[in-house]
């Protein structure tokens, strides 16, 4: 069975490396600050006890005050998983890109940019993927008008 690590298991380890990164830790996920997302993800991937080498998927959810990005990480070696979340501001949504760590994030980040409007800094080719260039608006937002 894949052991789903809770925020309480992993948050102390992250806090030891990056003292003010963790915003919230509950039994489902670990929420970190968006500026430190890349460093925390790199730490989670390269540390021997955690070794999250497989990025399962990235989702984005629009809560009316903020956007929340959900990263679902899996380790094939130890067969455990973790949910890593980050929040970003609705007016200027920007998050560091995870493409250099996990190449599977490439098309998923482009899709989130296309449909939600969150920019990923450091992405090599951030352009629309499902809709065409010149489309106005980001359809999956809650305030999108037809």
């Amino acid at each position: 069975m894949t052991v789903a690590l809770t925020g309480f298991n992993v948050a102390p380890q992250i806090t030891k490396q990056f003292p003010d990164a963790v915003v919230e830790a509950n039994d489902r996920a670990v929420v970190v600050k968006s500026g430190l997302l890349f460093k925390v993800a790199q730490y989670l991937k390269n540390t021997p006890g955690l070794a999250f080498d497989y990025l399962n998927h990235i989702s984005a959810v629009d809560y009316y005050d903020y956007f929340e990005l959900v990263y679902y990480l899996v380790s094939i070696e130890y067969n455990h998983s973790l949910v890593l979340k980050t929040r970003c501001d609705r007016n200027k949504p920007a998050v560091p890109s995870a493409v250099s760590l996990w190449r599977g994030a490439d098309y998923q980040e482009r899709e989130i940019y296309d449909l939600m409007g969150i920019t990923f800094e450091g992405h090599p080719n951030l352009k629309r993927i499902a809709l065409w260039a010149g489309y106005k608006g980001h359809p999956l937002r809650k305030d999108y008008l037809e």
């Binding site: 352009k127 629309r128 065409w132 260039a133 010149g134």
Partner: peptide, 14 residues
């Protein structure tokens, strides 16, 4: 590629 994408997008909107 960006130029080609822009031309195609314009065609779709028209």
């Amino acid at each position: 590629a960006a130029e080609l994408d822009r031309i195609e997008g314009q065609e779709i909107e028209e």
